[in-house]
Design a protein around this nucleic acid. Structure first.
Length: 278
DNA sequence: GGCCAGGTGTTCG
DNA sequence: CGAACACATGGC
């Protein structure tokens, strides 16, 4: 049923789940992790150093999940390369975040999720997203690594949210973001914005198109670019990054210096900032 | 119970 | 043009 695969590059499930880019992934009681993306569900468990048991077949792993986990990119070499500078803060951030990956998630899910994320805590974001899924998503059955079955709700389509009942939608804890979600769903469903076609757009155009959606500002647009379109040169500046910029770089955003890797450095810093005081 | 959360749109000086 | 302010809720 399951397969064993090897991952030799940086790969730390705990950090990946706990770095604020995916809000539905979680550890289960059997020690495996569950990831959900679109209609696909993956259970993955660490077996040994660099060795993992996965619930899907080898083909689906190759065709989908390898890309999802950004495994074609060599993070170890990127880390070494980034550590060249004399910035001790970056050194520490990279060291602390080793094992993180920029997930290549579904662009529609990222759009809605990060619109919701504004002025919400990470647990609260997860609660809202989960409520959206149970109320408006599809239901599919999945087989865990232990051979038991789980019923999982998929992320709702744009169509489902366009037709969503207002009261139920409000019950998902969206607060003042509700009209933003409506606007995004409408623009996507009626192809005012073509999320699929934007995969071929350059970073700047993609960013500008996303910004046309109500409730999508610079930060959210960059999160969608980074986590939904795998544009690793985009570096969202949120309160944590802002704090780091002010405290460590006296107000200068040095992320820009990292060009195509700026988003990866951003993730390392985000993780570092969130965990250093725990 | 009060404070703050992976911000953004609007308004005001 | 930048600064200040409002915004709905949930989690701790």
């Amino acid at each position: 049923m399951s397969e064993i695969i090897r991952i030799t590059d940086d790969f730390d499930l705990e950090k990946i789940i706990d770095c604020g880019q995916c809000f539905r992934a979680k550890f289960l009681e059997d020690g495996s992790c569950r990831f959900i993306s679109g209609e696909k569900i993956l259970y993955i468990r660490t077996v040994d150093e660099c060795e993992y048991e996965i619930s899907c077949d080898f083909r689906e792993w190759k065709d989908f999940w390898e890309n999802y986990f950004d495994l074609k990119r060599d993070y170890a070499s990127i880390r070494n390369h980034l550590g060249d500078g004399d910035d001790e803060f970056i050194e520490s951030a990279i060291k602390s975040g080793r094992g993180l990956r920029i997930l290549h998630q579904d662009e529609w899910e990222m759009l809605i999720t990060f619109i919701i994320s504004q002025r919400k805590s990470i647990p609260a974001i997860a609660t809202s997203v989960e409520a959206l899924c149970t109320n408006f998503g599809g239901r599919i059955s999945a087989m865990t690594l232990r051979g038991t079955r789980e019923e999982i709700y998929t992320f709702p389509s744009a169509e489902a949210l366009v037709g969503a009942d207002g009261d139920v939608l409000a019950g998902c804890g969206l607060g003042y973001r509700l009209p933003y979600i409506r606007d995004a769903a409408n623009k996507v469903h009626y192809k005012e914005i073509d999320l699929e076609a934007l995969k071929n757009a350059d970073d700047e155009n993609l960013f500008n198109e996303l910004m046309k959606i109500r409730g999508v500002g610079k930060k959210v647009a960059n999160c969608v670019c980074l986590f939904g379109y795998n544009r690793c040169g985009r570096a969202p500046v949120d309160v944590w990054i802002e704090r780091a910029i002010n405290e460590e770089w006296s107000g200068v955003n040095r992320l820009e210096d990292f060009g195509p890797d700026a988003g990866i450095v951003q993730q390392y810093i985000f993780y570092f900032e969130k965990h250093k005081n725990i």
